[in-house]
Design a binder for these strands. Structure first.
Length: 205
DNA sequence: TAGGCCATCTGGTCCT
DNA sequence: AGGACCAGATGGCCTA
């Protein structure tokens, strides 16, 4: 039976060509600095990561498939078998070293799927950036990780819900909680997070 | 240098 | 059938 060969070329860089509006020289690592400047000049409140209403980092990139030409040089080259490493599980090794010809329909489809996946992840990351803009952080704080952003957002929502239900002035409510301890069990939701220390940076009015 | 975080690729599964 | 979603694998970058 004929084996199908497939190469796992990492052509992420060349794929920037598919991102119509995206600068090919765009570097993710440069994001925090640029975000910092943008957000501070826009709002001047809290930290760069907590400016309400800030714009999403990634524009809604227009994806064009015109470059999905199977003959494209970065879609991989001929079918050749690499020797598998000794300690690689056999099944993985089989898959890893399968290679399809550049114009193989599978390869074209897989490439398109990769691009869709990247676009999907960008949209998720864009949502994370927006969420970062809505949670309180220290002015000097480094960019929150995704998991920290989610946890902080959960805690912050819990706090806001409590404030709403109490009917008290937000600042008064928080001050009381921090001074006199926590009256009920639900306080624990946000008190156990990093949120408490950040609350003093919030301008409540 | 180890560990954390992240982007990317991938195949499988679910949905339209 | 094709796209969306997901989780695992992998490798790069950064920091303590």
């Amino acid at each position: 039976m004929e084996d199908m060969f497939f190469d796992f070329d990492q052509d992420a860089v060349s794929d920037f060509a598919f991102w119509g509006q995206m600068d090919p020289s765009f570097q993710y690592q440069s994001q925090p600095e640029s975000m910092l400047v943008d957000c501070m000049t826009l709002t001047g409140q809290l930290s760069p990561w907590s400016s309400f209403g800030c714009q999403s980092v990634f524009p809604d990139a227009q994806l064009t498939f015109s470059d999905l030409d199977p003959q494209s040089p970065h879609l991989g080259v001929g079918a050749e078998v690499d020797s598998s490493s000794a300690d690689e599980p056999q099944e993985i090794s089989k898959r890893r070293h399968r290679k399809f010809a550049p114009n193989h329909p599978y390869k074209v489809q897989r490439h398109a799927a990769n691009i869709r996946e990247r676009k999907r992840m960008l949209s998720i990351n864009s949502a994370f950036e927006e969420l970062r803009c809505h949670v309180p952080t220290f002015p000097y704080e480094k960019r929150l990780s995704k998991i920290d952003t989610l946890r902080l957002a959960i805690a912050y929502i819990a706090l806001l819900r409590e404030i709403l239900m109490s009917g008290c002035d937000p600042k008064t409510y928080v001050d009381e909680c921090m001074k006199n301890g926590y009256k009920n069990q639900t306080n624990a939701i946000w008190n156990t997070s990093d949120l408490t220390a950040r609350l003093s940076w919030i301008k409540w009015d």
